[in-house]
Design a binder for these strands. Structure first.
Lengths: 97, 97
DNA sequence: TGATTATATGATTTCTTTTTCATATGAACA
DNA sequence: TGTTCATATGAAAAAGAAATCATATAATCA
């Protein structure tokens, strides 16, 4: 079992900015600049995060002129988020987290 | 949306030891000492991790004499692992992670 | 009550991840 | 070709998380 793969995978959801990026891409694919605007972080920081997300195949990307468009791996991410949403709603109503 | 809840939740899967603990509890509930043996870490480190896992309701616990027995929140954890296992098998065949 | 066993806690050190900054690459187009 | 816009990269600084250590609590039982 590839433990490191799991660690990296989950790390991408555990980090605030990376999680924001995932959420930003739920509705539709976006270019880097659009993502930068949505999540309100430095371009460079976002690029680093995108790299990490794409390396784990949480995001896909394709070029479009001089832009790069990132999109969500919905097959994995949507059902995953659904499970965790249910969990958080159930258990984190009035917890301090 | 409780972003911090999500971050903490995923952090418990992203960390090597915590992930090991989750895996150790897949078959059956265990006492702290049993978990310590299984994951091969210091008792104190394991206790810290158990606290964090239980705070997010990934684990439940109950006392039994002077022991404390930890068990998995299967409803959330099992389907989650299933999704990620599929993902890792599909994408991380020969990746370096 | 005091000794023993099981687990938890808090503070500090150590390690990893994230942010930031400066700069590089690469595509489009005048 | 040179300028501009979009994105990526690498290294160093800053922040955050985990491991460690010493000690505390809590339950059991002699």
């Amino acid at each position: 079992m590839k433990k490191k793969s799991y660690n990296h995978f989950f790390m991408n959801f555990a980090n605030k900015t990376k999680f924001d990026i995932i959420m930003a891409l739920r509705d539709r694919p976006l270019s880097v600049l659009e993502i930068v605007k949505k999540v309100g972080k430095e371009q460079s920081a976002v690029s680093h995060d995108l790299r990490s997300l794409a390396r784990c195949h949480i995001l896909n990307s394709k070029k479009k002129g001089k832009q790069r468009i990132y999109s969500l791996n919905k097959r994995t991410v949507l059902p995953l988020l659904k499970i965790v949403e249910r969990h958080v709603k159930k258990y984190c109503k009035r917890c301090k987290l």
